[in-house]
C-alpha cells in the first residue's frame, strides 16, 4: 500500500466532525497493519482548527486553504484539492465519512482519480489487503469486499459509530498548503445559509433514542415521546412517516434516507419497522417496541415487544421512570 489518506469532514463552524475523527482513527489502525503512512487532508477557507484537531489522530495532516470554500459548495472543492495532494502512484486507500458530504467527496474523487469505491463500510480490516465489511439488503446480509488488482485509487466511505475515535500516542505535524491550480469543476455558490432552530438533541451520538412513528399521531404525541426521552437521558428519533407528516424535523429521521444510528437503547413507539427504517437502527444494542399490532415487522428485530397502546404504556412508563429518579 502506497499510502492511506483521510479526507476529513468538518462542521459548519470549521471544527473537525466526529466522523472525521472516527475515519482518522481507522486510517491510523490500517496504516499500522499495512506498514503504510496515514495522512489527513483538511480543505477549507480556514482549515487550521480542524487540521490541528485531526493531527491528534494522525501523524501527518495537510491543511489546504482555499478561500472559495467559504461561500461555495464544499465537496467538489475538497475533492479537487484532495486529488492534487494525494499521491496515487501505487495502490492508495482514500477514506472519508459516509454522510452527505463524504459521499459527494467520494463520488467526485472516483471520477477525478479514476478510482474504485466501496461505500457505507461497517468495518475495514487489513489482512494483506483491505477487507471492507458492508451491510446490504436492509441488513439481511453482511458482505466483505475488496478492490480488484490493478485498482490504484481505492475510496472507502465509513459509517458513523463503527469506530471509536482514539487519539494517537503523540500529535502529528500539520503542513499548510496553498492550492496548486485553478478549480476545473464549476464552483457552486452558497448564496445563503439558513439555521433551522431545532430544539431536538442530535440523534447521531445519542446513547438512548426514543423514536416515534405514525402511531404517535401528531405533535402532541411527540411531546410524550420527548418527555420519555428526557427521562431516559436520550434524544428523539422518528420514521419518515412522522417526518412527512410534519410532526418532527427531517434531522431526526432514522433510516435509509435519514440517519444511521447505533444507540445502546432504541425505544420505538408506534413504528411498524419497515425495511427502510430498519437499516437505520438495526445495530442498536437493545430494541424495545411498543405497538398495538403483535404482527408488526419490528417484532422480528426487537428484544422486547409490548403489545398495547403507546399512549397508555408511554404514560405509565414515564410515571415509573419519574418515580424511580425521585
Amino acid at each position: 500500500m502506497a499510502g492511506i489518506w483521510v479526507v476529513a469532514d468538518t462542521n459548519a463552524d470549521g471544527s473537525l466532525a466526529r466522523i472525521g475523527a472516527e475515519v482518522a482513527t481507522l486510517a491510523r489502525t490500517l496504516a499500522k497493519a499495512a506498514s503504510a503512512d496515514a495522512t489527513g487532508i483538511v480543505v477549507g477557507a480556514d482549515p487550521t482548527g480542524a487540521a490541528t484537531e485531526l493531527a491528534t489522530y494522525l501523524p501527518r495532516v495537510i491543511a489546504v486553504t482555499d478561500a472559495a470554500a467559504a461561500d461555495h459548495a464544499w465537496a467538489a472543492i475538497a475533492a479537487q484539492r484532495a486529488a492534487e495532494v494525494i499521491d496515487a502512484t501505487g495502490p492508495t486507500l482514500v477514506l472519508t465519512g459516509a454522510g452527505p458530504d463524504g459521499r459527494d467527496v467520494a463520488g467526485t474523487l472516483m471520477a477525478l482519480l479514476d478510482g474504485g469505491v466501496l461505500v457505507n463500510a461497517t468495518g475495514v480490516k487489513w489482512d494483506g489487503g483491505e477487507i471492507v465489511e458492508m451491510s446490504v439488503f436492509g441488513g439481511r446480509l453482511v458482505t466483505t469486499s475488496h478492490f480488484v488488482e490493478g485498482t490504484a485509487v481505492r475510496i472507502i466511505t465509513l459509517r458513523p459509530n463503527v469506530v471509536t475515535a482514539e487519539a494517537g500516542a503523540s500529535p502529528g505535524r500539520v503542513e499548510g498548503v496553498t492550492p496548486k491550480g485553478e478549480l476545473t469543476l464549476p464552483a457552486v455558490k452558497v448564496v445563503d445559509r439558513i439555521e433551522e432552530a431545532s430544539a431536538a438533541a442530535p440523534i447521531e451520538e445519542a446513547r438512548v433514542i426514543v423514536a416515534g412513528g405514525r402511531g404517535v399521531g401528531g405533535t402532541e404525541g411527540f411531546e410524550l415521546v420527548g418527555q420519555i426521552a428526557e427521562a431516559l437521558g436520550g434524544a428523539v428519533g422518528a420514521t419518515r412517516a412522522a417526518v412527512d407528516s410534519g410532526w418532527i424535523p427531517y434531522a431526526q429521521q432514522i433510516g435509509q434516507t435519514g440517519k444511521i444510528v447505533k444507540p445502546r437503547l432504541y425505544l420505538a413507539l408506534g413504528i411498524s419497522g419497515a425495511i427502510q427504517h430498519k437499516v437505520g437502527m438495526q445495530t442498536a444494542e437493545t430494541v424495545i417496541a411498543v405497538n398495538r399490532d403483535p404482527d408488526a415487522p419490528i417484532a422480528d428485530f426487537a428484544d422486547m415487544i409490548v403489545i398495547g397502546d403507546l399512549f397508555e404504556v408511554g404514560k405509565a412508563l414515564l410515571a415509573q421512570l419519574k418515580a424511580k429518579s425521585g
Binding site: 466501496l118 446480509l141 453482511v142 466483505t144
Partner: peptide, 26 residues
C-alpha cells in the same frame, strides 16, 4: 473495480420477549 469476497447472514436477535397486559404491567 470491486469484488465481493464473502457473505454471511448476520446473527439474529433472539426471539423478542412479548409483553401483554395492562399499561402498568407493560
Amino acid at each position: 473495480r470491486t469484488e465481493v469476497a464473502s457473505k454471511r447472514t448476520p446473527p439474529q436477535r433472539g426471539d423478542a420477549i412479548v409483553v401483554r397486559g395492562s399499561a402498568e404491567e407493560a
